[in-house]
Computed example of a mutant assay.
Amino acid sequence: MSLSARQEGPDRLYVITAGRSGGADETLDAVTLIVAESEPTPGMQSEHAHILRLCVSPLSVVEVAAHLGLPLTVVRILLTDLVDTGRVTARHPAPAPSPASPLTSPDVLEKVLVALHDL
Rank of each mutant, 00 (worst) to 15 (best):
P95E: 04
L3K: 06
V64M: 10
A90S: 00
E39M: 00
V83C: 15
S46T: 01
L82E: 03
G22N: 03
R91G: 01
V64W: 05
G43C: 05
R87P: 00
P99H: 04
V31A: 13
P40H: 00
D29M: 01
T27V: 07
E47G: 02
G9A: 03
S57H: 12
L33K: 13
G23C: 05
I16L: 14
E26H: 10
A100I: 07
E63R: 15
L52C: 03
D29G: 08
I77S: 02
V64G: 02
V56Y: 10
A115E: 14
E26Q: 08
S98C: 08
R53P: 00
H67W: 13
R53F: 01
E63C: 15
Q45C: 04
S4I: 15
L13A: 03
G19L: 07
G23M: 05
L103A: 07
S46Y: 09
T85E: 03
A18P: 03
E39Y: 07
P40A: 04
S98D: 08
E39C: 02
V112T: 11
L72V: 11
L103R: 00
G9S: 01
L109Y: 11
H50V: 00
S105I: 03
L3G: 07
T89I: 10
L116K: 04
D107S: 12
V62N: 14
M1N: 05
A94I: 06
L70W: 05
A96G: 05
L54I: 11
P10C: 13
L68G: 13
R53S: 06
L82W: 01
P99F: 06
S21M: 09
D11G: 08
G23Q: 01
G43V: 01
P106Y: 12
P10L: 13
D107A: 15
L72D: 01
V83I: 13
T17D: 11
H92W: 01
P42R: 12
M44C: 00
R53I: 04
A96M: 15
Q7E: 10
H92G: 01
S21V: 10
T17W: 09
T89D: 11
R53A: 08
E8G: 08
A65K: 02
T32M: 00
V62C: 07
M1Q: 02
S98A: 15
H48L: 09
V114M: 08
